[in-house]
Computed example of a mutant assay.
Amino acid sequence: MKEFRARLDLTQQQLASLVNLRRETIVHLENGKYNSSLKLAMDIAKVLNTTVNELFTFIED
């Protein structure tokens, strides 16, 4: 996600504002410490002009 965000020259705070999150949530998402809901993943993908599949990797337990 960080790579896609950087391509658009967005800060973590800017992305957080665009998807109605706290910056800390973006930090946790980028560090793999938070699992996004499908709705949130879709919202972020839309803002970053990409797909959910490009942004996130599903790893089955």
Rank of each mutant, 00 (worst) to 15 (best):
K33C: 08
K39W: 07
L38K: 15
A6V: 08
N20P: 00
S17T: 01
L55I: 14
A45N: 02
Q14C: 11
M1E: 01
N49Q: 15
G32C: 06
L10D: 03
D61Q: 09
K33N: 13
M1L: 06
Q13F: 05
L48N: 04
L48V: 15
I59M: 05
L40C: 05
R5Y: 09
F4V: 05
E3M: 07
T25N: 08
L8Y: 13
E30N: 06
V19G: 03
I44E: 01
E60S: 04
L10P: 03
E3W: 10
D9W: 09
T51A: 06
T11H: 10
H28R: 09
V52H: 00
G32P: 04
L55V: 13
L10E: 02
A45E: 02
T11W: 11
K46C: 01
R5H: 10
L48F: 13
H28N: 10
T25Q: 12
R5D: 06
L15V: 03
L18Q: 12
T11R: 07
L15D: 01
Y34T: 00
Q12V: 01
D43K: 08
E30P: 01
T25C: 08
V47N: 04
G32K: 06
Q13N: 05
K33R: 13
I59L: 04
L40M: 12
T57H: 10
V19F: 08
D61I: 07
T51F: 00
M42L: 10
D43Q: 14
A41Q: 09
S37N: 14
E54V: 12
R5S: 04
A45Y: 01
N35T: 09
S36W: 05
K46Y: 03
L15R: 02
V27W: 11
A41K: 08
T50K: 02
L48S: 05
I26C: 01
F56R: 10
M1Y: 00
R7N: 15
N49C: 13
T51D: 12
R23D: 06
K46T: 10
V27H: 11
L10T: 00
D61H: 10
I26R: 03
I59E: 11
L10Y: 12
R23T: 13
L21C: 09
Q14V: 05
R22L: 03
E54D: 14
E54C: 07
F58Q: 11
T51S: 14
K46S: 08
K2R: 14
V52S: 04
L15I: 05
L18K: 14
N35W: 05
Q12P: 02
